[in-house]
Design a protein around this nucleic acid. Structure first.
Lengths: 139, 139
DNA sequence: CTGGATCCATCCTGATACTG
DNA sequence: CAGTATCAGGATGGATCCAG
């Protein structure tokens, strides 16, 4: 935190990859990533796997509220995108280990930036939600 | 960029606010924020407003593919959370100006971090998606 | 110009039951 | 243990029409 809120729009060292083509109907990478990790469980799983590799039911116990189905789906999505590696041990009973790939680990860093912002400003957002519970506009 | 990808897991200066309570059924602030900005249009609107204030139809033209309804909904959501300020000019015809609040502007920074990651790794993700188009596992 | 109201298709998520 | 299959409810997004 150096020059924080001086009132100036803050010229951002990374200009965010341009508004969008407009007439292009496929979305920009940013939106794409946001939608991938913006679901209900992905971030939780990534964070857990960021600590160490986990087995399936280990993740399940770590999250608790997640259903078996959603954990599978979440892991499949992450695996498909190359963020998580799935390693099967042909034992009896079978066991499967999930771990972040280097690509997946590289996500932890920008994610932590957003996490810090979220934790820091969550009270302000919550407050704004309470106040601005859509009171009729002037009328 | 100092120590970038050395292969080591990178110990993250911000440890991401802990996995989750587990038995708590309300989500952590990070998930909350991710779900707010993880929808189809929010980030696009925020980015546009990050450049300068816009009027309603100006935003609409800037995004093009967005429907009137979704632009309204997106803006209402951002307004409710205190990220966007809505200023009405009682002219004829009426005009409304939207601009980021300081809170909204503060989001641009962590967002740009994620944006940089997305742009940088989007090719790898796309490639992984093509390869891993869910080929039947062994079978 | 700005936006509300409706209707509808689709996606996401959860609960439950079953399998190698 | 680690999943898959199926069904149902809610959320999300789009099209269209109407209004101040």
């Amino acid at each position: 935190m150096s020059a924080a809120n001086t009132g100036v729009p803050a010229p951002l060292d990374t200009p965010l990859p341009s508004p969008v083509p407009g007439d292009e109907h496929d979305q920009c990478p940013v939106t794409d990533v946001l939608r991938r990790i913006g679901d209900k469980w992905t971030v939780l799983v990534v964070v857990l796997l960021g600590q160490r590799p986990h087995r399936f039911n280990e993740l399940r116990r770590g999250i608790e509220a997640i259903s078996q189905r959603m954990l599978t789906r979440t892991l499949r999505g992450l695996e498909k995108d190359g963020l998580v590696h799935r390693k099967v041990f042909a034992t009896i009973p079978p066991s499967v280990e999930y771990r972040l790939t280097p690509l997946g680990r590289s996500l932890l860093e920008p994610l932590s930036g957003l996490a810090r912002w979220a934790v820091e400003h969550q009270p302000a957002i919550a407050a704004s939600r309470r106040v601005n519970n859509l009171p009729p506009r002037t009328s």
